[in-house]
Amino acid sequence: MIDIPERFIFMKVGNHAGESWEDILKRKRKEFEETGMTFWGYGGGACHPISQVQPFARLSLKEQGGILLVMEPVDSRADPDIVPAREYSSDGIEWVPIPKGITVTGSRHALVLDEIKPGSLDLPLNELEVGIGPSTGKAAETYLKGRTDKGCLVKSSKPRKVEEGEKYKLVRKVGFTAELRDPFAVLLR
């Protein structure tokens, strides 16, 4: 069991674009072996690469030496378009081709990761809050309700009290982790 970092990125993961979680993992490991890095595609308004992930990661690098993505495997029914991205950009200005050997489909954004490793961690959401952006300070258990499935989280200075018997409802079971590497997150097209 690994320790909960002060700051980290949380993401629910699962089947995507018609691929099973196991197949995605296998493909991403192969990409890492071939290129030394992995692009982890995602979408939605939370964790924007430039306005949220990059500044959050830079601060984490300064304060704790790095930034970890923690992934909770879930039974996802996401089945978006599978058009692969051709280019990426870390600033929205300069665009370069996706490195050969990396495939990222059905996503507008991607985290740039080191190797994805199995890692067991129980995350009590009532002890966490959003660490950047307009939702800064919002309780993680509220933020991650409904459509939002990811967040730049920090340990909360004001953990919420939860009845002993209810605690398990707020625990997220992390199964995999990966260090982010510079430029941490990119736009795709």
């Binding site: 990059q54 929205g92 952006g133």
Partner: peptide, 10 residues
């Protein structure tokens, strides 16, 4: 500009 470590580049 947009936050700590979040510069105005455009």
């Amino acid at each position: 500009f947009y936050g700590s470590n979040s510069p105005l580049l455009v």
